[in-house]
Design a protein around this nucleic acid. Sequence first.
DNA 1: GATCGATCTGAACACTGATAAGATCGTCAT
DNA 2: ATGACGATCTTATCAGTGTTCAGATCGATC
Lengths: 224, 224
Amino acid sequence: MESKHCIDGIIAALKKKARPGRAGERRGYHHGDLRAALIRAAEELLAERGAEGFSLREVARRAGVSPGAPAHHFSSAAGLLTEIAISGFDQLAIDLQRAAEGNVSPAERLQAQGIAYVRYGLKQPGRFQLMFRHDLLLPDDDRLHVAGKTAMKELEETVRLYRAGQGRPVDDAEVMRLCLAIWSMVHGFLQLTLDGKFTALAPNGSIDAFVVSELPTIIKATWP
Amino acid sequence: MESKHCIDGIIAALKKKARPGRAGERRGYHHGDLRAALIRAAEELLAERGAEGFSLREVARRAGVSPGAPAHHFSSAAGLLTEIAISGFDQLAIDLQRAAEGNVSPAERLQAQGIAYVRYGLKQPGRFQLMFRHDLLLPDDDRLHVAGKTAMKELEETVRLYRAGQGRPVDDAEVMRLCLAIWSMVHGFLQLTLDGKFTALAPNGSIDAFVVSELPTIIKATWP
DNA sequence: GATCGATCTGAACACTGATAAGATCGTCAT
DNA sequence: ATGACGATCTTATCAGTGTTCAGATCGATC
């Protein structure tokens, strides 16, 4: 129901953009750019209430549209959420790439990317947790899988440099293992933080301050 | 609604146990030991369908009882799930303790506990993920928080030994950081595994085989 | 200018958790 | 022994969810 409409819908939306009225604003029986409006509303809702507070009907309500309307643009609620997860991975890839820039040593670059990963999650907790909730996403979406792997490629390249800098011959399996190690650690640290497991450790209630002060030390101590 | 009934209910259940008929089996208008039966049914459902497939009504159905019955034994669905999460942390603590036994060096002990943590999650994926879904649990349950911290204490003691074995003076802050590091890594590794992010890396489709072969290598390489 | 298809509505269906009034039954005091 | 009381369970109801589908609407194309 989606793929064919999709392209036409985008073309139609582009044509409408030239006319007065913002995209996403209701103007009559037909919305004009409902797909984009739904995504925006869903992102807002996700930011406000997290992945658990999400509701497709609430999204429709915010877009000023009936409960059945989203079905014409997304195969299901998971379809809409998958779209948001994909753009989330895209943004994460950008953040990781930015973190890689301007670091002289591979170790610094590795540390900067680890910190960037956690910062990304703290910046958008709802979206980040969604990205790793396969029960809320389309299980076989190729674009989602590609987006996820693309983001990780950023990390992989850094690990390869780091490994090369250690003098020893670069073994692919070793690179993978180190990649898994750093990814697992920052991911676990972020998940545990977002789940509130570290709140007791936060100095004056600010978990962000705790993360900013401790995480770099932890990463540097583990991969000097 | 719970606390006062709770004790009396347990006493009543103990008296009933002496009589014929297994606990948890329906025998009349009154169940006899519904609280335990609900927990058991919930654990089964959790094992079958995971935290997302959970439904309080389905649990009541499996216990052969009406949808409103659970309300007399648990304050809400979160109350029941919190109970299961608590026993989950208790079991995790036991597994971690077992892993600590019979390891000569602190490094071996650290590695064994890390592997035990991941094994626990693979053994009971639904329950493990529940334990870190604060949106499904009672947010201010003291017993839950204590159970979680108790499990982590097992790890903390090992880290202290490991740190002491390195010859340097044991700094509490350093112990905490190393504890966070190892916990984050195994936790993240487990989460990513359960989320299917490593399926592509599994040799012949068996993610368990992949974990068993790679995880020890990763841990040993990171904390030798 | 008529037609066709994309888009949206509104009502349904099958679920969910929670709540409250009433039925049932064990237990304990009289 | 007999009430009465309170714990337990049923039943019905409420508000909410995702999904589906017939029909209304309207833009674009022929």
